Amino acid sequence: MTKQTQPIELHSFPTPNGQKITIMLEELGVPYTHHLVHIGKDEQFAPDFLKISPNNKIPAIVDPEGPGGEAISVFESGAILKYLGLKFGQFYPADPRAQVKVDEWLFWQVGGFGPMLGQANHFARFAKEKVPYAIKRYIDESQRLFGVLNRQLEGRDYIAGEVSIADFACIGWANYYETYEIKLEEFPHFAAWLKRMNERPGTKRGIEVIKV
């Protein structure tokens, strides 16, 4: 495994997207520092943060020991997970066929599982105007996605077989399953994975390490 001498700088907030990276860093056991970007105070729009995250979204990292020994910044949670997995040779397989499986489920999360659950959460809990159509649309789609995940986990301990960045991408969102009216007894493979993931010491630390 590649050794990290200088700590990686993590700029984040303890949302499910932010937790992806703290979980990965804790599971890797590499040194890092955390810089809180308080999205409730619009700190994600600060000019200094914009330099490393052009989309004004958390998380972002700065690795002072990037490729060629030069510092590099990385934004977007999926890109950060792949970068760290490739750099340290953990939680992202070397075999090309296995990489495809992990990539499929990583992109499934960043393109569907996260955004759809986020919209469901917004319209059901935070929108000033309750729009029944929007609530039903996104809750229904969230439940469909939990069903997809449950089927994928049948006969597997982890989403792509071995524990990987695909699991780290999903667990923070999955922990809020009750928001989406998910009954664990109806999703037994998901329920077993959820318990398995939350019992991992690194994952547990990654979820709990940042408080606001």
Rank of each mutant, 00 (worst) to 15 (best):
E70D: 14
Y83H: 04
Y92P: 01
P93K: 06
A160V: 01
G68H: 07
I165C: 07
P132T: 07
K57P: 05
Y176C: 11
V209I: 15
K183I: 08
K51L: 05
A160Y: 01
V110W: 00
A98P: 03
F126A: 14
W193C: 06
R97G: 05
E141Y: 01
G89R: 06
K130D: 13
F88A: 02
Q90K: 14
K195V: 11
R205H: 06
P93M: 08
D63Q: 04
G68E: 08
L153H: 07
L153F: 08
S53F: 05
E185H: 03
E162R: 01
G66R: 03
L86E: 15
I61V: 12
N55P: 09
R125V: 14
I207Y: 01
S53N: 09
H38F: 11
M1Y: 13
L145I: 10
R125M: 14
S164Q: 06
E104L: 04
Y177S: 05
A127D: 05
G155S: 10
G118F: 07
G172P: 01
V102K: 03
L117R: 10
V163A: 15
L117P: 04
K82Y: 13
K51I: 04
P96T: 12
S73Y: 09
F168P: 01
P96E: 13
N198F: 08
A192W: 00
P115T: 00
H34T: 15
A98K: 14
S73P: 08
F75C: 05
P96C: 12
Y177K: 05
V110Q: 03
M24I: 11
I61C: 10
K3I: 14
I39S: 00
F190P: 02
G161F: 00
D42Q: 15
I182E: 08
R156T: 10
K211T: 14
A79W: 06
D42S: 14
V100I: 15
I21C: 07
G112I: 03
G85W: 09
A169R: 00
I52T: 02
P54C: 15
Q44P: 04
G68V: 06
E43D: 14
I39C: 01
K41M: 06
K41F: 00
T15V: 03
F13M: 09
W108H: 14
